[in-house]
Design a protein around this nucleic acid. Sequence first.
DNA 1: CTGAAAGCGCTTACAG
DNA 2: CTGAAAGCGCTTACAG
Lengths: 350, 350
Amino acid sequence: MAQKVKLSTIADALGLSTATVSLALRDSPLVAEATRERIKEEARTSGYIYNRRAASLRTSKSGIVGVCVQSIMNPFFGEILRSIEEELDRQRHTFVLCNHHDDLAKQRAFVDTMLQLGADGLILSPAVGTPAADIRLAEENDLPVTLIARTIEGVGVPGFRGDDRLGMSLAVDHLVSLGHQRIAMIGGDEMTSTGRDREAGYREALERAGLTWRPEWRIAGPRDRHSGFDATLRFLDLAERPTAVVCFSDLVALGFMYGLSRAGLRPGIDIAVTGYDDIDEAAISMPSLTTVANGQSEVGRRAADALVARLRGDDTVDGTHLIKPELKIRESSGFVWHNSRQREQSQGLA
Amino acid sequence: MAQKVKLSTIADALGLSTATVSLALRDSPLVAEATRERIKEEARTSGYIYNRRAASLRTSKSGIVGVCVQSIMNPFFGEILRSIEEELDRQRHTFVLCNHHDDLAKQRAFVDTMLQLGADGLILSPAVGTPAADIRLAEENDLPVTLIARTIEGVGVPGFRGDDRLGMSLAVDHLVSLGHQRIAMIGGDEMTSTGRDREAGYREALERAGLTWRPEWRIAGPRDRHSGFDATLRFLDLAERPTAVVCFSDLVALGFMYGLSRAGLRPGIDIAVTGYDDIDEAAISMPSLTTVANGQSEVGRRAADALVARLRGDDTVDGTHLIKPELKIRESSGFVWHNSRQREQSQGLA
DNA sequence: CTGAAAGCGCTTACAG
DNA sequence: CTGAAAGCGCTTACAG
C-alpha cells in the first residue's frame, strides 16, 4: 500500500469531485447510476478504506454502541450479549464490549472512552455501587443509556431485567410444595438490584408459606461457579441443615452441586437445589438443574430495540421493564426422583 | 449541557490559544506549570470531553486495539482475554472485543471496522478457513496483527498458542500408562490448526505406543459443552467401545461426562476421560478433570506484549511461539481411583 | 446530476 | 513559554 487511498484519490482518478464520490459510496440517488457504478468499481480496485473517524467528526454519529456488563465470561451475560449483537448487527451498528468486573473505575473509564469516541449509545449492566450521577453524565453528553439485568433508582432511562422477586418466589414455592421446610439461599448480595430482589422474593415466599426465615440460612456472596463450590463447606456446617437450597444463579448452583457431590451428598436426592437464569448447561447437567428462566434473550433484544429507537429520536420507551420469569422443573429439586421414579430409571439406561 | 465544550471553549475562557490548551492537557513540559494547572482546572469544571475522533484523524493513532475470537463465552478464550485486557489496560489502550463464531464474513466485517476506525492493532484467533490474504490485507493497511490460539500458514505475523500436538500426546501417554488400549478422541476438526495438531498428537502417541488407530474412534466436530454432551450417543454406539477418551477441550469433556453419567456410566471409573485447556472448572467438576494446561494467560499476555512492541516499532518478535503444555492429572482419567482408593473414599466423606 | 467551499475538533510544525 | 495557521478525510448545504 504505497499511498493511502481516500475520497479525493478516487475523485481525481475519475475526474469527479469528492462530494460526488462521497454521495455515490453511500448510495445517494442524487448520483447517476452509471457514475455511481464507476465510483464503486474504482473504490474496490484501489483498495479504498472508508475513514470513519473523519466521517464521524463531521456528522457526530459514530455507528458505535458500547455494551458493558459485569463479566462476559458469565454465560448469563453471554446469552444477553448474543441477542444484543444480533439486533445491533441488523442495524449496522458496531458493538464494543467491555467487562467492568464490578469495578466502578473500570466502568467509568469505559463510559469515558465511549464519550470520547462519540458512541451513539450505551447498554449497561451497572457495576455495584454505580451512582445515578454516572448515568446522568453520559445522558447529558448525548450518550443515551439503556440498562440491563440491574437497574438504578432515580434515573429516567429504559431498563430491562427479569422480575427477580417473582422468579425467586417461584423457586421457593416449588420447594415448599415438595414438602421442604428448611430452605437456604446461597449467593448474591444487597449490592445489586438483582441480589436485593431475589432475596426479597425468597423471604416473602417463605413468609407466605408460614415458614421462618433464619439469617444463618442466607449465605450471601457467591456469584460464580467457583464461589458456589466454596460455599458448600459453610452450608454443611450449618447446625440445623436445610433440606433445600435456592441459589442466586445457575453458576452458583452448579458449583454448589459439585461441592455437594464431592462431600458425598446427592443433589436432587439428599439436598434439593435450584438455580436461576436457565443457562444452556442447566438442561444437561447431572442432575439437570431446576431453575428460573430469566428471559436473557428477551432482555437483550428489547434493550437493543429500545436503544435503537432512542437513536432514531423515539423516546417513548422509558422506565424499567420486567420480563416475566418462568420456573423450569428438572431433576435437581428432587421433583423427578420423587414423582416419577420409573421414568427416571428407564432414562438412566437410555 | 447547553453547548459542547471543546478546546477552543477552554482557550477562550482563559484567553489562551487552543495549541497551549492542547499541550497542557497532555502534560507537555512546554507549558508553564501554572498555566497547565489553570487549564486543567477549567477543563474539569467546564465538563470538557476529549474528542478522540478529531485527535485520531490528526495523528492517525487511535489508541484502539481490536480483539476477535471465536466465542467470548468459551472460558478458554475468556481466560486469554482476561490477560490481554490486563496487559492492554496497563498500556492505556482501549480494547474492542468481538466474537466471530467461525463466521468468516463476521470476522471480515470486524477487521474492516477496525481499519475504518484506524485501530492501532489487532489480536485475532482466526475463524475457520481464514485465508492468509485476509491477514495481509490488514497488515498492508497499517493494522498489525498478532494471532492467538490458532495460527495460519504463510503469514509472517507473530502467533502464540499452546503446543497442541505435544499436549495431546501427553494425555494419550498418560492413558496408555494406565493400561488403556482403546482410546477415542472426541471433538475438534481439521479446519483449525488446533484441531489438526491435537489430532496429530493423538495419532502419534497411539502409534508410538504400538496401538492401532481406528477412524471410527475419532468423533470429530464437538467444540463446546453441549455438543460434547450430544457426542455421548455416538460414542456409546461404537461396536468395540473404547475404555478411554481424550477430548478436544475441557468443555467437550465436561459435556461428555454429563452424557456418560446420564447413561449410567461413571466417568473416571467406567470410562477414563481427559480434557484440554485446564479451565477453572476442571479442578472442581465431578469427577475433577484430568486435562492439559494450555497456558491461556501466558498466550494472552505474550500476544499483547508482542503487539504493543510492534506498535512501538519493535519488529523483533515474529513467527509462531509455542507455549509448553502441562498435564494435570485428576480423577476423570481414573488415576486416582485406581491408585489411591482409600484416599478417595475418605475424601468422599469430607 | 455534479462541484466548490466550509467546517467537524483536534495536533503539529513553525514563528516569535 | 505561547500563538497563528494549516491540515487530517470526510459530509453538507448551496449553487449551478
